[in-house]
Every structure is written in structure tokens, then in C-alpha cells.
Design a protein around this nucleic acid. Sequence first.
DNA 1: TTTGCTAATGAAAATCATTTTCAATAAGTA
DNA 2: TACTTATTGAAAATGATTTTCATTAGCAAA
Lengths: 140, 140
Amino acid sequence: MSAEIWLTQLHENGYRLTDARRIVVETVEKSARALTPIEVYDIARKKYRALGLVTVYRTLEKLEELHLIQRVHQPLGCQAFISAGEGHQHLLLCQNCGQVAFFEGDDLDVLTKSIAKKTGYQISEHWLQLFGLCADCRPI
Amino acid sequence: MSAEIWLTQLHENGYRLTDARRIVVETVEKSARALTPIEVYDIARKKYRALGLVTVYRTLEKLEELHLIQRVHQPLGCQAFISAGEGHQHLLLCQNCGQVAFFEGDDLDVLTKSIAKKTGYQISEHWLQLFGLCADCRPI
DNA sequence: TTTGCTAATGAAAATCATTTTCAATAAGTA
DNA sequence: TACTTATTGAAAATGATTTTCATTAGCAAA
Ligand SMILES: [Mn+2]
Ligand SMILES: [Mn+2]
Ligand SMILES: [Zn+2]
Ligand SMILES: [Zn+2]
């Protein structure tokens, strides 16, 4: 998924392509870790001085609405965003540098069926997130 | 786990037992769903008019520090707290009424080992949360 | 191209959640 | 009972996010 595709998506959904949006999209899309609005602002402003923080918020909002990015929940805060995985994927986060990896193939069917039976709940969704240390941050 | 035990825990950790704390503890402990600080404040103030919102924040902070409550992350916000499960447990949330059920017995060893191998991450923690409809809210 | 409509922008103000400050109060120990 | 000091609530401060608004610029149509 490249920044170009995100911009196309925005355009196809009736949003105009502006310099501010291009920079925000590029910044978020190329990041290997989740970024908060302020972080996006600080990084993006190095390339586009006039950028306003409000525009960062507004652009993130639209990207989330189009499912191009997703909010990342972490122990220290839940305001950061990362590009959304394709299909059914979950996140694996490095507790040291924040680097994000996606994974898929989790099969929780047996578990959810058993829990549904025990609790009487009708289960329709799950959140799964792994934490650890990436190859770079792992002790030798 | 009863409110009495929470109060004892607070006391044993050097915190004084005050009316404000008693009401906050009772409110959070008896709730079947996660409550935000404002919700705790509104409910608790029905029994203790003079309660200040700041005290709610401060008490929740201490209860979390003693692992008696835990923060609950949800799509609409991450400021709510619920009494903490005992041992290794996860949450199952009703998307309609917010009722919380705990479950345990998830075994993610096979999955995490496989993901660790694939990604090179050293995995040490996981977040798992199920969503659905509780027995009361489920369609017939 | 140029034009015209209006979505998008950034600054400033407003709002909302949370934290800090502070003087008064009350818990708990001696 | 008296004393020490943690705790309280009000108010102010802070920080994040949203709203307002006048100006600018994207882009579709001429
Ligand atoms: Mn899954
Ligand atoms: Mn588990
Ligand atoms: Zn790392
Ligand atoms: Zn329910």
C-alpha cells in the first residue's frame, strides 16, 4: 500500500488533494511505528512549514474513516495511528522502539465458541495485540 | 472481591479511609460495566453530595496502582475502569449495554511461538478482548 | 485556459479531560 | 484528646481535541 493509493482513495471519495494532505499521508504511510497527531505534525512540518495541526487531525480522521489507518491502543496512550493492515490482521508492537509488525492466522474459533457457551454472550469481534521486543531491540 | 477488601488493601498500603474513598470504591466495585471518572462521579455523588471529581481521579489512580481496577479500552474511548480480574483473565464486553464478563483459559502459546519465529520478535505480553452481546441484549 | 463554486486551510477561540495548586479539614496514631 | 500530615474540594492550569471563521486554492465546467 503506497501513499499514491491513499491519495487516490481520498480523491475517489470526493476529497480534494492538497499539499497538506499529501504530506500527512506520506508521513503516516511511511512510518513503521504508530504516530500521534502531534508527532505527525512535527515530522510533516519539516517538509511543509505552513501545515496546521488542525489539518493533521482532519486528515487522520478521513484516513481512519476510509480504513486506511487504524488507531493503536497502548498502555501509555491510545491516540496513535498506523496504516491499517489488509484483511484480518493484528498488531505486534515493540515495547522499546514502537516498531509495528502485522500478523494473521490467529484462530480463536475454539476459544470464542467455548467462551460463548460459558458466558451466554454472542461473540462477534475480538481484539488481539501482542507486545514484545523487535529483532533490533531484543537482548543478544 | 468486595469493597471491604479494597478498603483494607488501601489501608494496608498506608492510605487513609475517608468517606469519599469509601463511596468511590463501592461505586466501582459493584458496577457490572466499566465506568469513566465522570460516571463514577455522577453515580457516587448521589450518595455523597460533597464528593469532588478530583478525588474520583485520585482514588481511581490508587486503585489502579494496587491492581484492584484496570483500564478498559473500547472503540469509543479508553478512560473507563472496571474491577480487575484475578490472575490471568481477559474481558468480554457487551456492545449494547457494556456489561463485562471475564474469561480465562486462552492459550496463545502456539500462536505466539509461530509469530515470534516469523517476525523475529521476542513476545512477552498479549492483549485479548472479546466483544459481542450479553445474554440480555442478544436477539431472541 | 479561465472562471466560479465551495471544500479545505490555518489561526484563534472554545471545549473537554486531566492535573496541579492551595488552604482547610479530618484520619489515625500517640 | 492532641498532633501530625494525608486528604479534601475549589479553582486554576495544562494538554488534547474540536469548532469557528475569514481566506485560499482544488477542480469541474465553460
Ligand atoms: Mn483475529
Ligand atoms: Mn491471555
Ligand atoms: Zn524495537
Ligand atoms: Zn448487554
